[in-house]
Write a protein that binds this DNA or RNA. Structure first.
Lengths: 306, 306
DNA sequence: CATCAGTCCTATAACGATAAAAGACGTAGC
DNA sequence: GCTACGTCTTTTATCGTTATAGGACTGATG
């Protein structure tokens, strides 16, 4: 095989939303813009829609013939890039409790298990090594460091430094800076969350991510902003993994965010700093308790085995 | 082609230092340890030495027949891993003044130019992207951000945060901690430098690197320690590129390091912090002036061309 | 005359293959 | 009984190839 057609499949699925009976599809360039792909891919999608009998396509006229049915969609698992599949498989392995820190990791075994090429795994490992969970010596195997308590502590030490600095920078931004408008919008989303938390269950991680990224962007420092990718990834998988008390944790975080936002708005750097620290301390504890639980589970399993 | 035999060639060249007329080579395992390679590679080296008539090899006896000559060595450019060649070529391109920030970068052209495969370039780019000088959008080309003044400022902002924290942590280390002994050794090297700077010309970058890495290690934080790789790489190529006033700059840095060391030893965190800040300010200025000179050269060239 | 589609070329993502290097295991020699 | 060597297996580094996606150019169309 060669390059996978996940971009095509994902965009094809998205494009079906525009296929409304009796309507006419826009120009290729317009479709390309809306779907976020190139015109080449759009043309491939249109060809496929013709083949499926969804549309009639003659140059400028793209007439919808029938509404899409469930079987017109590509299965979801085929729409993710190989790299994403590798990432997910890898993270679920790292987050699972049976990884001993310092254990070796084999590229080709993992590739075989997932049904992808060794290069795909290899490139993932290289990309992933900046997250501090794996390391390698030249010409030797990769070593899994394990998602340990030490890792969480080190991660949060840097996060605190970076976010405090960013929060202070944010508080100093001139009032006409677009970041304030973005903050207003995010604050509104938070209030909506408080009002109907149940309806928005599972959508907090995304909001959380956007909130913290906005804060970090005020640093205007690519290293600080990039570092948030590490935190973001860890939290992304962490949320998926530990669903206990989700509602309560989210509610706490939302309230802390609102205080934090108020602190930023006050223009008093010390206020911003105070609420920033407070929120980070909570987030730190949440992550640490999960990390400890996993480490306990692992050592217990080892004792039982040994 | 497949995996390159640079490990073999490099180790072969090194092994020739042990080939002294009339002597006998140690065991395979011992050689492997000394050369830092596997026994497999050692055996390949011994085979090659036999083929070159350098030694007679019969099981445990490895009798040297003649001293190595100049032509017994592999040329130096064949002893570097492909990845290292890619790195060097890439850095000299980024550091050269004719890169416009935001310009595109083509994997296959670069691969053809260097005579390596596209995968080699690709893996390098992935590895290198954590240095903040390049970026990519999915399914699109790489973008060179350029080694601009903004880059240097952002780099130093983070460096200051990390090194100050590390220096404070260092000052707090208990006196029996091995880091203090390492610091003693490095201090002695600095004093030797002051006494005979000319004899040690060109060897300061290595000393500088080891000194700062030692400081950073006191943070016990993998993210802080890893970040020093970024700084180290930038400085490595920067030193090679800007040789003006080298002696003077080195002498200043050595004196600042000695003050910094004294500050760490005093046990007063404020002292350590003061001299740390002072040294970092100098380093920052040095890098910035070089960055500005390069940016000026570029815009001048562009004006001349436009 | 701006927007659209047809066509073609180029660059990237992913693959599988191969030689180099690492490493494991058993046996021989001192 | 330890150390060293012979042999074999496993794993990585690097390569070249292929299908997909991006993008540029050009003529057609309203």
């Amino acid at each position: 095989m060669s390059k996978s057609d996940t971009v095509f499949k994902e965009a094809y699925n998205q494009s079906l939303a525009l296929v409304v009976e009796g309507s006419v599809l826009p120009s290729e360039a317009e479709l390309a813009r809306r779907l976020g792909v190139s015109r080449t891919t759009v043309r491939a999608i249109l060809d496929a829609q013709v083949a499926a009998g969804l549309i009639a396509w003659d140059s400028r006229l793209k007439q919808v013939l029938r509404a899409p049915r469930a079987e017109d969609y590509f299965p979801e698992d085929q729409t993710d890039a190989v790299s994403l599949r590798v990432e997910r498989a890898f993270m679920s392995r790292v987050l699972s409790s049976d990884i001993r820190p310092g254990s070796q990791f084999n590229e080709s075994d993992f590739a075989r298990e997932l049904g992808v090429s060794t290069s795909a795994v290899r490139e993932f490992m290289i990309r992933f090594s900046r997250f501090g969970l794996i390391e390698k010596q030249r010409n030797r195997h990769w070593v899994l460091n394990g998602f340990t308590e030490a890792f969480s502590l080190e991660l949060f030490e840097v996060r605190e430094m970076f976010e405090l600095r960013s929060a202070r920078a944010f508080a100093r931004l001139p009032r006409e800076h677009p970041a304030w408008a973005a903050l207003d919008a995010i604050e509104a989303e938070h209030r909506a969350f408080l009002e109907a938390p149940r309806a928005r269950l599972g959508r907090f991680p995304d909001l959380d991510d956007r909130f913290h990224r906005l804060i970090h962007s005020a640093s205007s420092n690519r290293f600080i902003i990039d570092f948030y990718d590490v935190i973001s990834l860890i939290f992304h998988y962490h949320y998926q993994w530990s669903k206990i008390d989700e509602m309560e944790r989210n509610a706490t975080a939302v309230r802390e965010h609102l205080d934090y936002i108020a602190g930023l708005r006050s223009g008093e750097e010390l206020d911003a700093e105070f609420y920033c620290r407070k929120h980070l301390a909570t987030a730190r504890e949440t992550l640490l308790s999960a990390t400890r639980a996993r480490e306990d589970a692992r050592s217990e399993a080892e004792n039982a085995a040994g």
